[in-house]
């Protein structure tokens, strides 16, 4: 009666090369677009006279900077972490612009749903927080991880092992999986309800055609939800990065 034909998972996740030879596919297009859009927006922002009250694109860029400084850095690292603003701002803008194509017509694919992009970002974050730890604490960063101070001597090897694994392995792993899986799940949900609506519309039974409104309403709802997820996952990725940098810079917290 109803041939529900869900496409193979790779067909909704992997894309043929748009320009063969250099591996330029839809994901590459999205990341390049993300870079172009963010550079264009910030360039337009700095072209405006900074002495006038900010309006339009400059206001937007300044609100973003204030958001990173006041909502992300101040509660996690504190005043000394304000130097990390450009890095975290770039991270936030890039992740958001890679997330949001999941609901943009014709693109309809969040670049971060492919594991490679969150993996790269997590590796960068890993390098940054380990580097910050080494810079502020020297080799003490690793010795504190392995032999944590303020723990009973008998528990030190156990706690040290847990700390070492959770800091150096679980942190980048969970950052990667969290970002990728959230966007992947959203993408698969959208595909599922789109396929359901389409198959119901196309079905031979007339009685089934009006039922297509239900998955369609769900599709609209999930699309709205995906906007929230795109923002929230970028926010969570960046605030976790800030927390990790904070623990590297101030080991006592």
């Amino acid at each position: 009666m109803l041939a529900l034909d869900f496409p193979p998972i790779n067909e909704v996740l992997r894309w043929r090369d748009l320009i063969p030879g250099i591996g330029f596919n839809k994901i590459s297009l999205i990341v390049v677009l993300a870079v172009v859009i963010s550079v264009a927006v910030f360039f337009a922002a700095i072209r405006k006279d900074p002495m006038k009250p900010p309006t339009g694109v400059r206001n937007f860029a300044e609100v973003l900077v204030e958001f990173i400084e006041q909502q992300i850095i101040m509660p996690t690292v504190g005043r000394s972490g304000l130097g990390w603003t450009p890095f975290l701002l770039t991270l936030f803008v890039f992740i958001f612009l890679c997330n949001i194509p999941g609901i943009i017509p014709f693109l309809q694919m969040p670049a971060t749903a492919r594991l490679a992009i969150p993996l790269f970002l997590s590796l960068v974050v890993w390098l940054v927080f380990v580097g910050a730890g080494l810079k502020h604490q020297g080799v003490g960063y690793f010795t504190h991880l392995i032999w944590p101070p303020g723990v009973p001597a008998g528990l030190k090897p156990l706690v040290g092992l847990i700390e070492l694994v959770s800091t150096l392995i679980v942190r980048p792993f969970s950052l990667t999986i969290r970002l990728c899986a959230n966007l992947l799940a959203g993408h698969i949900l959208l595909v599922t309800f789109a396929v359901l609506a389409q198959e119901l519309i196309k079905s031979d039974a007339i009685a089934l055609k009006p039922v297509a409104i239900l998955p369609w309403v769900m599709l609209v709802f999930i699309t709205a939800f995906e906007v929230l997820v795109a923002f929230l996952q970028a926010y969570i990725f960046v605030i976790l990065t800030a927390v990790y940098i904070g623990t590297s810079v101030h080991p006592e917290h």
Binding site: G23, I27, S28, V35, L115, A116, F120, C180, L184
Partner: peptide, 15 residues
């Protein structure tokens, strides 16, 4: 869910 090298390179380069 396997990371692909070309996407890794493109995404990383862009970032």
């Amino acid at each position: 869910v396997a990371p692909e090298l070309k996407e890794f390179l493109w995404g990383g380069g862009a970032f």
